[in-house]
Design a protein around this nucleic acid. Structure first.
Length: 307
RNA sequence: CGCGGGGUGGAGCAGUUGGUAGCUCGUCGGGCUCAUAACCCGGAGGCCGAAGGUUCAAGUCCUUCCCCCGCAA
């Protein structure tokens, strides 16, 4: 099949690789423009661009699409059968959605209509869903509202955001390869808008722990935000990131955020409900460390309140 | 040249205004104990990230490089 692929981050790499291996003719890869990022402000390619270059596929990086006649003309002349989109990072205008004969299809990291939006994978963990998955849909003008074409599921289990992300990325690639050939005949299933939820884009600030929450939810947040943006709280002026924790059912008789115990391999913190037992921590400028190790060279003041 | 923290015995950390390194844990040996992630006694283990330089003398000052990490993007 003749396809144009649009995607940007790591999540969008496996589908690209899979289509290439499956023998689909990928005319162009469209991805976000190079941008400065990371320490030292160096210019970095998007992961998808890096892979496309490796595979020898022409890359397009339009700043904007809507009024970009040159870009629109280029993809029109490419005459793709379909445009496949995975975490591209920009809303596509109707002119693009209607351009290919088979339309545009999108790989989304949740079981729609649950968790429409930018961060479905993390949302599934935070909300405590036992099951999540991948949905491939026909793209419509609304945000992740198109008719569903195929689904694949997996368990959330005790997975971190990274683990679930990687798993769903490859699951999405598989599902895409299965779905593409059937595209001309497959019948989409409309989403039930009444059941839809929205998973907004995550910001650094979302990692700031609110200890008045249920310890169980905080633990899920810690997992979901591993490795980014990380989940943190402040001890005095110092930021502490938490990477692993358990939940104790009993409730502490102390205000939320109070450190009630710190010994051996754990630091216990009072929450709105339950106690958060932190077992892996990271201080600024330091690496992730098991609390067991951390406590050997650092002292934790019992009764201190984290904010 | 975006801002900043750090690389010290196996692990996590201290090391004052430069004078050949210390703590906690672990480890090994011994002791106590019904027992212990407990306690007591004793021991091993470090070319202090790398390469230069200053100095009578550098972990501690200067230069360059390598690596790790936080912020910001």
């Amino acid at each position: 099949m003749r396809v144009i692929y649009m995607g940007t981050p790591d999540f969008a790499v496996p589908p690209l690789t899979a289509m290439h291996q499956a023998g689909h003719e990928i005319v162009y890869v469209v991805t976000q423009p190079d941008a400065v990022s990371g320490r030292g402000k160096k210019v970095h390619f998007s992961p998808v661009k890096a892979k496309a270059l490796e595979l020898g596929i022409p890359v397009l990086q339009p700043e904007k699409i809507r009024k970009n006649q040159e870009f629109l003309e280029t993809i029109r002349q490419a005459k793709p059968d379909v445009i496949v989109v995975a975490a591209y990072g920009k809303i596509l205008p109707k002119t693009v959605l209607e351009l290919p004969p088979l339309g545009c299809i999108n790989i989304h990291g949740s079981l729609l209509p649950r968790f429409r939006g930018a961060a479905p994978i993390q949302a599934a963990i935070i909300e405590g869903d036992e099951e999540t998955g991948i949905t491939i849909m026909k793209m419509a003008e609304g945000l992740d509202t198109g008719d569903m074409l195929a689904k694949a599921t997996t368990l959330t289990d005790g997975k971190t955001g990274q683990q679930l992300h990687d798993e769903l990325a490859s699951l999405g690639a598989e599902l895409l390869i299965q779905t593409l050939p059937a595209l001309p005949t497959i019948k989409g299933q409309p989403q039930d808008d009444a059941l839809s939820t929205y998973a907004p884009m995550i910001s650094k600030q979302d990692g700031h722990i609110d200890f008045s929450e249920d310890a169980a939810r905080i633990e899920r947040r810690i997992r979901a935000f591993d490795p980014w943006p990380g989940t943190f709280a402040y001890a005095k002026e110092k930021m502490l990131k938490f990477w692993k924790a358990e939940v104790l059912d009993r409730t502490a008789e102390a205000p939320a955020g109070t450190i009630v115990e710190a010994k051996n391999d754990h630091i216990d913190i009072a929450c709105g409900k339950g106690i958060l037992r932190v077992t892996e921590i990271q201080a600024p400028g330091k690496k992730r460390t098991a609390v067991k190790e951390y406590l050997k060279g650092n002292s934790i003041e019992i009764g201190m309140v984290l904010g």
